[in-house]
Structures are given as structure tokens and as C-alpha cells.
Amino acid sequence: MSILEVENLSVSFKSYTDGFKEINHKVISSLSVALEAGEILAVVGASGSGKSLLAHAILGILPSNASISGSIKYKDEELTAARLATLRGKELALVPQSVNFLDPLMRVGSQVRTAANGGDAVSAQRKVFERYHLGKEVENMYPFQLSGGMARRTLLSTAMVSGAKVIIADEPTPGLDPVVIKEALSNFREFADNGCAVMLITHDIESALQIADKIAVFYAGTTVEIASVKDFVGKGEAIRHPYTKALWRALPQNEFIPIPGSQPHPSSLPSGCLFAPRCEMATPECEQAQPEMRELRDGMVRCIHAT
């Protein structure tokens, strides 16, 4: 049973053109994805593919000019605004991108303690710090005194100490050196092994492959493929969608060959398959309608030609 289930989610933004005309941009369309307990799902895609917005939609922190449709279910029950308010920070936690999310004027120990829900906050915080190899002196430090890696572990501690069941991590790795990345990723693995569900949002397919169980590939605001990590081997023969194949092929350790063009802008989405304009396999049929997600070889794919 999925702990968190997103079904047919669409998000659009009201915005203005240069003149005074109001337009609606659909930035996420008919997106479905599910999170299982004890599992890491990596959400991979280019910037602008809507992957961060998915996190914001789940946590109910989209800006006020966004409108949303579809359903988000947590433990089989609709995640309404009221329910979110009681769950956010308790059962659902966000590990933000940057250290800027720490309060610069508060000692990190007390920041982590404020996240604890019930029980002895101090001992809970100490236990978590010990686990992430943060010494006793770190408790009394301010965020500016922390190194990048320590700050990241502090952010993780905050999520950990809250006892959350679902953790959403938004781009936790870029700009870190390999040692720190490895450590951060293994922390997520540990979370999942303790029965949490982790959604790891990243543009970096390589680090996602190191720890995730499943990969959801985003393109222009929707999922094009959900695949097991095991499918990403060799020349990518087991991968289903042509975009995922292109991403795999473009990695420096593989062929490093890109496909031309770029992701369509929300204001000018193609009418049929969103990837069709850049797809080698595209046929006139692809331009008819956006294909549905369908099951294929133990995964999901949004392509009529995939085999």
C-alpha cells in the first residue's frame, strides 16, 4: 500500500504578459506518482520540469496565484489543507535545498529541538546528533559556524527528530563534494530502511541511482517514466521512454551525446505527446493526444511506442 499517492495532479499559475493580459500556465499536468514506506523514490528531471513544484504542492506551500486539481492522498485519505496543517512537520517533513533555511540567529541545537514532537526534545536531539556524527559542541553553534556538510546533517536531523513518516528532499546534493554527497545520500537510505518513505528530488540522475529504489522521470510538468533503478544499466536497453534514454546516454560516463532542443515552455506546450517534437521515434499519431501512463515491464511509461 502506498503511503503517499499523487493522482492526476495539475498545477497552473496565473500570470501576466508584458501587456495587461492575464494567462494561465499549466506547469504540472496529469501527474501521478506514489510513494511506498521503506522506499526511496527519486524524482529526476531538468530545471523547469515541475519537480520542485510537486514537493510544494504536496506540502501545500504553493504561492497564492497557483491553482491545483487532482488528488493527493496520505495513508489513503485525501490530504486537505486542514489535515496538512496538522501533519506538516510531524508526519510530513521537507529537507530544504539550502542552509539558508536555518535560522541564522538561533543555536542549531535548539532549532532541532523545536522540531521534536512531544517527549524529551533535548535527549531526542542529542541522540540524532550523535547518530549523524555531530559532536556535542555543535549544539551550541550558530549556522554560520557550520561547514556545508554539517549544515546539511543539521537539516536532516531536523527532519529525523520530528519522527516524520514521509520525507521530501529538494535538491540536497548539488555543489557538495563527492564525500559529502555520499554521506548525505546514505543518510536518506538509513531513513528509508527505518520504514520512512523518501522522495528525493534532484536533477542529478547519477546520485539518484546510487541510493534510490525507483526513479520517476519528469518532463515538462509530468512523469514520462517510472522505473526501477535496476533498469539503468549498459546502454539503457531496459529503459522505456526515449527521454529517459536520452538522459542516460547524455551522462559523461556513458556516451555524453545530447539530443537537441529543449523542454517546451508551459505557455507553448505541444498538443500531443510533450516529448514528440524532440523524439526520434515520433509518428503523426504521437501528435494526436497526450499518451496515458501505462504499465510496461514492471514500470510505467507515457509513450505509445515504448516496448
Partner: peptide, 17 residues
Amino acid sequence: DEMTTMLDANTQAQIWH
């Protein structure tokens, strides 16, 4: 300097090529 660190694999390869 970390020019393509924030970019997806395909865009990274495009720019470098």
C-alpha cells in the same frame, strides 16, 4: 566554475558540446 552542476544531464551535454 561548476557551470553545469545545477543542470540535467542532457542540457549539460548540450552546453559542453
